[in-house]
């Protein structure tokens, strides 16, 4: 009797302590999240602040200050610039990035599937080859590749930027393979017994379980393509075919040291990405609930 009472007392105390610890943990977590977010947002804040200043303010005040009177006109100036059409560039970039994102995500997952789930001749050594292709710096293969595109008469078209996306990106094949290897095989075995083919297993079992990683591949590809300068710079000559980031660079050289315009352009170029990223979060969450509910 005595003993059980003691036990109950101890349990209650422990539980109370646990709750306090948990609450403290939550509070601490919230503080870390808020402070960290603010810290990580600083560069963006500086960008926005400068984009809303007058040239005099930029040269006289500290970059950390908020403009006395936000100059929204800077954005109007950038968006209506006679030489750089941001609307057109935005459309181009959205199209190219969209195609590339679909291509890379699809082809990388498809390529990863046999590496993770099937047994075939030369698998392990082909995989080493796949890794090896990531190790030679792009700078040295850039010119030979360019010569190939020129030979195909693909220069100044979107083809060199988009077609390779459908041929599997080693980095993401590797990522998808690692992820697939973490998914237990019981379900595909069950499906095989029911007579499901490879494509069905891939599509109905692996893809739903891979949502988080597919979303990651998509976001990375989208951001990488969106912000890529070197590829479009070398490939695209016609102003009407160019991308946002390239137009932004042109805009920067045109504007030389007019920081307010350069930063306004940078904010305009990055804003869609931020919106897309927040939207993509929903996929993350969905992926979470799907894996959680199985």
């Amino acid at each position: 009797m005595d003993r059980s009472q003691n036990d109950a007392e101890r349990w209650r105390k422990a539980a109370a302590r646990g709750r306090i610890v948990e609450r403290l943990g939550r509070a601490g977590l919230a503080v870390v999240l808020v402070v960290g977010s603010l810290l990580f947002l600083l560069p963006f804040y500086v960008m926005v602040a400068i984009s809303l200043k007058t040239p005099q303010e930029i040269s006289l005040t500290s970059p950390w200050t908020w403009p006395a009177e936000p100059q929204w006109g800077n954005y109007v100036y950038v968006l209506t610039h006679p030489l750089v059409s941001f609307a057109r560039l935005f459309l181009n970039t959205a199209l190219i990035s969209g195609i590339v994102t679909v291509g890379v995500t699809l082809s990388s997952a498809l390529t990863a599937y046999p590496f993770a789930r099937m047994r075939f001749r030369g698998r392990d050594r082909l995989f080493i080859l796949l890794l090896a292709t990531m190790m030679l710096p792009g700078a040295v293969t850039m010119i030979p590749s360019y010569q190939l595109w020129a030979w195909l008469r693909w220069i100044d078209t979107w083809l060199p930027l988009t077609v390779p996306a459908f041929l599997g990106a080693p980095f993401f094949v590797f990522l998808c393979r690692q992820f697939m290897l973490g998914i237990p095989t019981e379900m595909d075995e069950a499906a095989t017994l029911e007579g499901a083919g490879d494509l069905r297993i891939f599509w109905q079992i692996l893809v739903p379980n891979m949502k988080p990683v597919l979303a990651t591949v998509a976001v990375f590809t989208l951001v990488g393509t969106w912000k890529d300068v070197l590829g479009p710079l070398l490939i695209l000559n016609s102003p009407e075919k160019q991308t946002l980031e390239l137009g932004l660079r042109t805009f920067q050289t045109l504007s030389r040291v007019e920081w307010q315009y350069i930063m306004a352009g940078a904010v305009i170029a990055v804003l869609p990405l931020i919106v897309i990223f927040i939207a993509a979060q929903k996929v993350f969450i969905k992926g979470l609930s799907l894996t959680g509910g199985k």
Binding site: G36, S37, F40, L41, P43, V46, A266, V270, I278, Q281
Partner: peptide, 15 residues
């Protein structure tokens, strides 16, 4: 929060 932590990777460059 996730977006906040990812923004520096997006903004990048000159800023």
């Amino acid at each position: 929060y996730r977006a906040c932590f990812y923004i520096p990777s997006l903004a990048g460059g000159v800023a």
